[in-house]
């Protein structure tokens, strides 16, 4: 049985989650709900829930303040938010789950399913560290959380030279010449890194524009990156690419 609490300053939002949790009463028990940051912190420390539905905006403070203040992090967090773009990016980077309000039944189901499949939350404190780091930092110094075979890997965006697609996997090439194989599509990385000066030059290649050493003209041409790898530029992407590096 999974125990859960809700921290949200709006009653109708709390009610909505309660409603949504009804079909899962056999697996998830709601053991408390709080409407302020402080009460939430106390609630976490006293109740020690497995999962916290955490609102981002709680009066004049945030859900991140809750995370900063709690001492132990042996729980999963599912943020709930209406429209905080900055926060959503941070969640994505840190691979922290979130639900958008008004919460869709289907989305909620996916989140609960994911929760059930997680055996333990041993890496969560690291995730939280990454999240808290990402909230405060500029894009390039943000860290992305990458689930690998061995566990979670935290990579600073500026460490990534390029990503290469391999069907449903992606290989990440880092500055220190490491290759990391991730079971995520290149598209997901493109979505994640598009605002960090990354550009998908080819169906199979996402590159960090900061690390281009040379562009060689051609039909589409190709770029040489600082690790001396040469990456073909797709003909259709050439114009956009040139605009991006222009």
């Amino acid at each position: 049985m999974i125990t859960a609490i809700i921290i949200d300053d709006e009653q109708h939002c709390t009610d909505r989650i309660k409603n949504l949790l009804k079909p899962y009463k056999d697996t998830i028990t709601l053991i408390g709900d709080f409407s302020t940051v402080d009460s939430g912190i106390k609630g976490i420390e006293n109740l020690k829930p497995d999962v916290v539905f955490l609102d981002v905006q709680i009066h004049d403070r945030t859900g991140f303040d809750v995370l900063k203040s709690v001492n132990h992090h042996a729980f999963e967090v599912i943020f709930t938010t209406a429209f905080e773009a900055f926060a959503i990016q941070a969640f994505k980077f840190s691979a922290v789950d979130y639900l958008l309000k008004p919460i869709d039944e289907d989305d909620f189901k996916l989140a609960i399913d994911k929760l059930n499949s997680k055996i333990e939350a041993k890496d969560f404190s690291k995730k939280v560290d990454a999240l808290l780091n990402n909230i405060s930092k500029t894009d390039v110094h943000k860290k992305i959380t990458i689930p690998t075979v061995e566990g979670l890997e935290f990579l600073e965006v500026s460490d990534i030279i390029r990503c290469e697609a391999d069907v449903n996997y992606t290989t990440i090439f880092t500055k220190d010449a490491k290759k990391i194989l991730v079971s995520k599509t290149l598209k997901s990385f493109e979505a994640l890194l598009a605002n960090c000066n990354f550009f998908r030059v080819h169906n199979s290649h996402l590159i960090n524009l900061d690390y281009i050493k040379k562009y060689t003209k051609g039909k589409g041409g190709y770029v040489t990156l600082i690790d001396n790898s040469t990456i073909e530029v797709s003909t259709r992407r050439k114009d956009d690419f040139l605009k991006a590096i222009g």
């Binding site: 958008l100 008004p102 919460i103 869709d104 039944e105 989305d107």
Partner: peptide, 13 residues
């Protein structure tokens, strides 16, 4: 209405 609106919100987004 609630479900509908939720879906509508999602599609709007």
């Amino acid at each position: 209405a609630s479900t509908y609106l939720t879906k509508f919100a999602k599609i709007m987004r």
